[in-house]
């Protein structure tokens, strides 16, 4: 897509690491916690520069969430780091009671989300975390799409009062969001304007959606691509404005089809503007070992899947 040239190939987790380091330099209340994955989460630069504000908790994620909640009492802004599976499902009750219900200003930062974690396989490839987190009252859920946006989002959530779940990933991925494109929590970004179908995507699949739109254009279909980086609160105005025009929807996410971005959009549309919708999501299964590209293909999250879903959606208008 000529409008979005590939600027670089970088992992989104490195965007988190870069953002956290910037925060450390600009906000003395920002503290980091990690459960024995400092290198994987790219928190090592923060740890090195601010050792007194970094807490290595060991392989004890429940304790990490509780300590983070306690650190807010006294004005700290804790950023916890571990894999998405261990950031959510493993510690759901700790997040529910000590962070969400208690209204604590903790930033739960989760790497290695989804299938693109790759070879480690299904134990680590959580596909349910968006749903888990979005069900918690008061939780903000953000899934940035590339390195630049993950850096921006990391910085933005420090200024947001309240618990946040920030989801990112492991593999190197195209960097295409220009630095001058501002990130705002809760404000979806229309990356391509179109009139035939609205493609809503988050995370790694935004890049896939851009490629799919290019393919669709060759076939005479003008797809609108919207980056819904904030799943909760959903930018209802942006979704409704696009759908009013296109009258059909494709949702794309690296997540189970239950509980994620697709359901979030469907829930809005069911109550406000019933619209044909097709899901590009994992079909209620666990993942497996493989390369990110192999897995996206096998589990139906690749460019041809988005193109086919767009055609199905258009036919249902």
């Amino acid at each position: 897509m000529s409008a979005y040239p590939i600027l670089d190939q970088k992992d989104t987790r490195s965007g988190f690491g870069a953002g956290l380091l910037e925060l450390g330099r600009n906000n003395p209340n920002v503290v980091g916690l990690c459960a024995d994955l400092t290198g994987s989460l790219k928190m090592d630069a923060f740890q090195k520069e601010f050792p007194e504000r970094f807490f290595q908790v060991g392989i004890a994620e429940a304790n990490m969430m509780g300590i983070a909640a306690g650190l807010t009492i006294g004005g700290k802004i804790p950023f916890t780091g571990t894999f998405a599976n261990f950031s959510t499902g493993r510690v759901y009750d700790q997040i529910r009671q000590s962070i969400a219900y208690a209204g604590k200003n903790v930033k739960i930062c989760a790497s290695h989300a989804g299938l693109t974690l790759g070879e480690d396989g299904a134990t680590h490839q959580i596909l349910e975390d968006i749903g888990l987190m979005r069900m918690l009252p008061g939780m903000t859920v953000i899934v940035p799409c590339d390195y630049n946006q993950t850096r921006q989002a990391t910085i933005a959530i420090a200024a947001h009062e309240g618990p946040v779940y920030l989801r990112f990933g492991r593999p190197k991925w195209p960097v295409f969001i220009p630095n001058e494109m501002k990130f705002q929590i809760g404000k979806a970004q229309r990356l391509i304007e179109g009139s035939d179908v609205s493609i809503f995507a988050c995370g790694h699949l935004v890049w896939r959606a851009l490629i799919a739109a290019k393919e669709l254009q060759k076939e005479g279909v003008n797809a609108e691509v919207i980056n819904v980086h904030t799943i909760k609160p959903l930018d209802a105005d942006a979704v409704l404005a696009s759908v009013s025009k296109t009258e059909c929807v494709v949702s794309c996410e690296e997540h189970n089809r239950y509980g994620g971005l697709g359901d979030t959009i469907a829930q809005l549309l069911a109550t406000r503007l019933p619209t044909p919708q097709e899901y590009v999501a994992v079909n209620d299964s666990f993942g497996e070992s493989g390369t990110p590209d192999q897995l996206l293909k096998k589990y139906g999250l690749d460019v041809p899947d988005i193109v086919a879903a767009a055609h199905r959606a258009i036919q249902r208008k």
Binding site: V31, A62, N63, I67, G70, I73, G74, Q94, S98
Partner: peptide, 16 residues
């Protein structure tokens, strides 16, 4: 959960 929380609050006191 409370011991973890108390530890966090104690760490914040040290930082402050």
């Amino acid at each position: 959960q409370g011991l973890s929380v108390a530890i966090g609050a104690a760490l914040a006191k040290k930082l402050n």
